[in-house]
């Protein structure tokens, strides 16, 4: 039963990883930018929610209404002002710029908020759970996270497939120069895509903070690696693949946690490296959707 329970918890944890991976996947699929600061954007989202709570007393759910669009706008301008220029300078420059951001954010957060955890309390939501079988309980928050992750992935898929903006994003991923010839400024399309990626990252960051009861400046480093591992395990470019990748990573971590509380991160990383060696195309082999 312990194993079954761990499996269930792992699958649900995978929802969080998939949500974290979605923004990374969008940024890479459309802009070919690997955002090394992705985890830090998640952290910033969680910090904003924590600050809104501690200074204004706004509940987490309400703060999402501001935090998510706000980081979307930040993503738009980061793309327009920094990354667009970097993209024109070659392959190294965008990486170096996002790595620079990844260094700036955690250190600034430590200086501003110390290394203490900033609490994101959710009342009893974090502890409430439903017993589904003997020894297997499903937490309400993890279930909600999984639900939101699935909805986000489905929503992103539909957005890219059915809306005009989504069409432009796929076209920009194919051939941005020709898109310009069709009267569409690809830089704005890219910026909207990065805004979307940042907004989803912020949402994922807040869910992470709720799960952990708070957020520290060091979480971004972990999160970017989790997100990246989910993307690669799932197979590059496939949105549903990130869900599969997240679940594999989540299950690996929780199963390792059954053996020893020190093992989850190491085993997660080793599973990722093993997948990399054995199946470089990832677990879900599907047509590139994004």
């Amino acid at each position: 039963m312990v194993i079954v329970n761990a499996l269930v918890q792992g699958v649900l944890l995978g929802g969080l990883f998939a949500m974290a991976a979605l923004g990374l996947s969008i940024a890479f699929g459309i802009l070919r930018v690997v955002n090394l600061a992705h985890g830090e954007i998640m952290t910033v989202g969680a910090y904003l929610a924590a600050v809104a709570l501690s200074t204004l007393g706004v509940s987490v759910w309400l703060s999402l209404l501001v935090v998510v669009p706000l980081l979307g706008v930040v993503g738009y301008w980061v793309q327009r002002l920094l990354l667009q220029r970097a993209l024109s300078l070659g392959e190294l420059a965008p990486l170096l710029v996002t790595f620079g951001i990844a260094i700036i954010i955690p250190n600034a957060l430590i200086e501003l908020f110390t290394t203490n955890k900033q609490a994101i309390p959710t009342g009893d939501l974090a502890v409430r759970s439903v017993q589904v079988a003997e020894g297997v309980r499903i937490g309400v928050l993890p279930l909600l996270t999984m639900l939101v992750a699935v909805l986000l992935i489905a929503g992103t898929q539909q957005f890219l497939a059915r809306t005009r903006a989504g069409r432009y994003m796929r076209a920009a991923a194919d051939d941005s120069e020709t898109l310009r010839l069709m009267g569409v400024d690809h830089r704005r399309v890219y910026a909207y895509a990065m805004g979307l990626a940042f907004a989803i990252a912020a949402l994922a960051g807040v869910f992470f903070g709720m799960r952990q009861g708070g957020v520290t400046p060091f979480d971004g480093q972990l999160l970017v690696l989790f997100a990246f591992e989910a993307v690669i395990i799932g197979g590059l470019g496939s949105l549903w693949g990130t869900l599969a990748g997240g679940i594999v990573l989540g299950v690996a971590q929780t199963l390792a946690g059954v053996v020893s509380p020190e093992l989850p991160l190491l085993v997660g990383n080793l599973v990722f490296l093993a997948v990399l060696v054995l199946r470089p195309t990832g677990i879900v082999r599907s047509k590139v959707v994004v």
Binding site: F28, V33, V34, L36, E91, P94, L95, F99, V224, L225, F228, E229, I232, L236, L265, L266, N269, L270, F272, L273, L276, V277, P280
Partner: peptide, 18 residues
């Protein structure tokens, strides 16, 4: 070397963590 470009970068990071 299974990864390239940006994913190589982040892959080396995972290796360092591991």
């Amino acid at each position: 070397f299974r990864l390239r470009g940006g994913y190589f970068a982040i892959g080396t990071w995972v290796i360092a963590e591991a």
